[in-house]
C-alpha cells in the first residue's frame, strides 16, 4: 500500500472512530437526560411522600384524638377546635351537634358544675349559653354555645362527665 493509501485509510478509520464517538456521546447525553428526568421525578415523589406523611400524620393524630371520645360510653362533649363543632355524644353516637366559638386548648376536662348559666370544667374552662345570633369572639378559656343547644345538652351531662377538646 502506498503512503497516500495508508493516510486515506487512516483518515477513514479516524472518521469512523469519530462517528462512533459522536454516537456514544449522543447515547450518554440521552441517558443523562433520562437520569435527570428520573432524578427529578424521584425528588418530586419523595417530596410528595413527605407531604403525604405529614398530612396523614396530622390526620392520624386528629382521628386518634377524635376516636378517644367515641370510647366513652357515658354522655360526654366533644369539641373539634379546627371546625368549632361541639357535639353531645354517647359512645360512638352523636346525639346533637352544633357550631360554637371556643378559645380553649386541646385536652380532656371533667365537668365540675352545671347550671343554667354555664357548665364549669376542670382547668377553669366554661361553656356559656349565648344567643343564637351571637358573634362575639370567645374569651380565653370559654366556649360560647347557642342557648337552644346548651339547654338541650345540659340535662344529659352529670358532674364527672368528660369534655374532650381536640
Amino acid at each position: 500500500m502506498t503512503p497516500r493509501g495508508i493516510l486515506i485509510a487512516l483518515t477513514l478509520l479516524l472518521a469512523m472512530v469519530s462517528a462512533a464517538l459522536i454516537d456514544k456521546r449522543s447515547e450518554i447525553l440521552d441517558e443523562l437526560d433520562l437520569l435527570e428526568e428520573a432524578s427529578a421525578k424521584a425528588v418530586d415523589a419523595t417530596v410528595n411522600a413527605g407531604i403525604t406523611l405529614e398530612i396523614d400524620r396530622i390526620r392520624l393524630a386528629l382521628e386518634r384524638a377524635r376516636s378517644t371520645p367515641s370510647k366513652d360510653a357515658t354522655p360526654h362533649l366533644a369539641l373539634g377546635l379546627g371546625d368549632g363543632r361541639l357535639s353531645l355524644e354517647r359512645g360512638e353516637i352523636v346525639l346533637r351537634a352544633t357550631t360554637v366559638r371556643a378559645a380553649v386548648p386541646r385536652g380532656a376536662h371533667t365537668v365540675e358544675a352545671i347550671d343554667a348559666k354555664g357548665i364549669k370544667l376542670s382547668g377553669g374552662f366554661t361553656l356559656l349559653p349565648v344567643a343564637a345570633d351571637d358573634s362575639t369572639a370567645a374569651a380565653a378559656g370559654t366556649v360560647r354555645v347557642p342557648r337552644a343547644d346548651f339547654d338541650a345538652m345540659r340535662p344529659n351531662l352529670a358532674v364527672g362527665a368528660t369534655a374532650y377538646f381536640f
Binding site: I28, E31, L32, L35, E36, A38, S39, A42, V43, A45, T46, A49, G50, T52, L53, D56, R57, L60
Partner: peptide, 27 residues
C-alpha cells in the same frame, strides 16, 4: 457526569423508598 447522575438517582431512589415506606406506615 453519567456516573454522578447514576449515583444521584440511586440516592434519590433510596430516599424515595424510605419516604414512601414511612408515609405508607402512617397512611
Amino acid at each position: 457526569e453519567q456516573a454522578a447522575h447514576r449515583a444521584a438517582l440511586a440516592g434519590d431512589s433510596a430516599m424515595l423508598v424510605t419516604a414512601q415506606g414511612a408515609a405508607r406506615v402512617v397512611t
